[in-house]
Design a protein around this nucleic acid. Structure first.
Length: 470
RNA sequence: GCUCCCGUAGUGUAGCGGCCAAUCAUGAAGCCCUCUCGAGGCUUCGACUCGGGUUCAAAUCCCGACGGGAGCACCA
């Protein structure tokens, strides 16, 4: 039995996805159960909207959970266990100031509260703590003040936070810390294999000490490394300022590794899952290049999405002796995916990039249509009809007629260069897309031939594209 | 500073005493195929951080150095 325990304090990102995928896959492989648990033990962080937002993100990822609950549902149980610890003299009320406590930890010095404010005395003080709302005391574990592992130097178990909780309101003001809640919840909820990221490793000892004092079953704890992507920071500390300064559009900005950002950019959940699984489950810190995600995504999308013509930076082409034609072009080599019909006359648009490589006399092919010989290159390119027969060596260029739509495609780049924001991280490509693109539903991902995979989205009434990758 | 974790090609991974002159993916280069600069096929390039030790035998075990990461919160 596994669990995914997010704190409802933000949108999920690729790092959460790694944890959630490992947790749920592990359960699935061994035919076990998978629990979604909201670790909402700090009312200062938890926000109501994120419980649902995170569930939505998980559903989008294709993750299914067998049951779900909130750690805040179990506070009464936590209080009982706390009392047990106090009466066993395994926890004590500490009235020292945070500074004194920090000093004590640093110098491995025990404070007098440890022996004095435990047992029956401690119990009374604990009840006072539950009754009053004064934040001048905490409950600490009797750990090992002289341990080399500083996490073991009598860590905090409960503290007073007098802030309204999104679910329990002002019912409670004494909240367990991660060390206590995490260990207790894993154990009493029946989780057998809890996974967490490496930065908690030093806390393992605390985890097992708490459970052993409480005589609770100890799960098989395992750690894995955090997943980081080059140039795509995951931490709220880095992302939030960008939003506040208006440097990105929000948590769903296409440059961000949030699940919402990745989705908008055209990365599909199946690709994220496969990518995460490819990374494996190890303790090696790695900074992965986003191209690994792109590669997986591309292979997933290639056989599935429709293909259209989009002409970036278009140049007009007049084919002098062109006859009117009506062509049907497949939307995909797999003909069962349908086709679109285009009427052509003598006016076309082709990419400037291709024009720049041409000279008078060259022959190229309007892809799927016919060949053209260039007769003149100026602001407008002129050419003549040069037959329909496919010539292997000629360039096949995508095109539109004058019956087309204007389209802006946003191309995301790395949002961070080293430690700082990259102001040059979002480019725009202006171009013409063939008429049929106007009929593509908002949110659909298509392949623009010779350009790349693009997710189309209607913004107000205007259609825009987000470039996923080649 | 102290403590802990980690160290295989550019990147990510498999291997965890002999089957490893090291797997797969990605990347790069080349060829084939294809009416895309995509996908697919084939080929090539490219790595066990270093130094000691244990052993008949080490990428794999031990010690040390170096490098990277994390923790030292009344945050998770």
């Amino acid at each position: 039995m596994t669990r995914f325990p997010p704190e409802p304090n933000g949108y999920l990102h690729i790092g959460h996805a790694k944890a959630a995928i490992i947790d749920s896959e592990y359960a699935r492989i061994y035919d076990g159960k998978f629990i979604l648990r909201f670790d909402d033990t700090n009312p200062e962080n938890a926000l109501l909207e994120f419980y649902d937002a995170q569930k939505e993100d998980l559903r989008w990822l294709g993750i299914q959970w067998d049951s779900e609950y909130h750690t805040s549902d179990h506070l009464q149980t936590h209080y009982k266990l706390a009392e047990q610890l106090i009466s066993q003299r395994d926890a004590y009320i500490c009235k020292c100031t945070p500074e004194v406590i920090r000093e004590g930890r640093f110098h491995a010095k025990t404070c007098t509260c440890r022996e004095e404010l435990t047992g029956p005395v401690g119990l009374d003080l604990w009840k006072e703590m539950l009754a009053s709302r004064e934040a001048n005391r905490i409950l600490r574990l009797r750990g090992e003040m002289n341990s080399e592992n500083t996490a073991m130097r009598d860590p905090t178990l409960f503290r007073v936070i007098d802030t309204k909780h999104p679910l329990t309101g002002d019912t409670y003001h004494v909240w367990p810390t991660y060390d206590f809640a995490g260990a207790v919840e894993d154990s009493i909820s029946g989780v057998t294999h809890p996974f967490r990221t490496k930065e908690y490793e030093l806390r393992d000892q605390v985890y097992f000490r708490i459970l052993s004092f409480l005589n609770l079953r100890a799960p098989h704890l395992m750690e894995f490394s955090r997943l980081s992507i080059e140039g795509m920071p995951v931490s709220k500390r880095k992302i939030k300022p960008l939003i506040e300064q208006g440097l990105v559009s929000g948590f769903d900005d296409v440059r961000l590794p949030t699940l919402r950002g990745l989705k908008r950019r055209g990365i599909v959940p199946e690709a994220i899952k496969q990518f995460v699984l490819q990374q494996g489950f190890s303790k090696v810190e790695s900074v992965v290049d986003f191209s690994l995600v792109e590669s997986v995504n591309r292979k997933y999308l290639d056989p599935l999405v429709k293909r259209y013509y989009f002409v970036p930076d278009p140049v007009q082409l007049i084919v002098e002796n062109a006859q009117k034609k009506t062509v049907k072009l497949h939307l995909h080599p797999d003909a069962t995916m349908g086709d679109r019909t285009i009427h052509t006359a003598s006016t076309f648009f082709i990419p400037r990039q291709d024009v720049q490589k041409m000279k008078v006399g060259d022959v190229f092919r309007l892809k799927g249509l016919y060949n053209v010989r260039i007769t003149k290159i100026g602001d407008t390119v002129h050419g003549s009809y040069e037959g329909e027969e496919l010539i292997a060596e000629t360039a096949k260029i995508q095109w539109t007629t004058d019956d087309c739509i204007e389209l802006t495609v946003f191309v995301p780049g790395l949002i961070f260069k080293g430690e700082s924001f990259n102001p040059d991280s979002l480019h725009e490509i202006q171009g013409y897309a063939e008429k049929a693109v106007a009929g593509v539903p908002s949110g659909e991902i298509v392949q623009f031939e010779r350009v790349g995979f693009v997710r189309l989205e209607t913004q107000r009434t205007k259609l825009v594209g987000f470039f996923a990758h080649k």
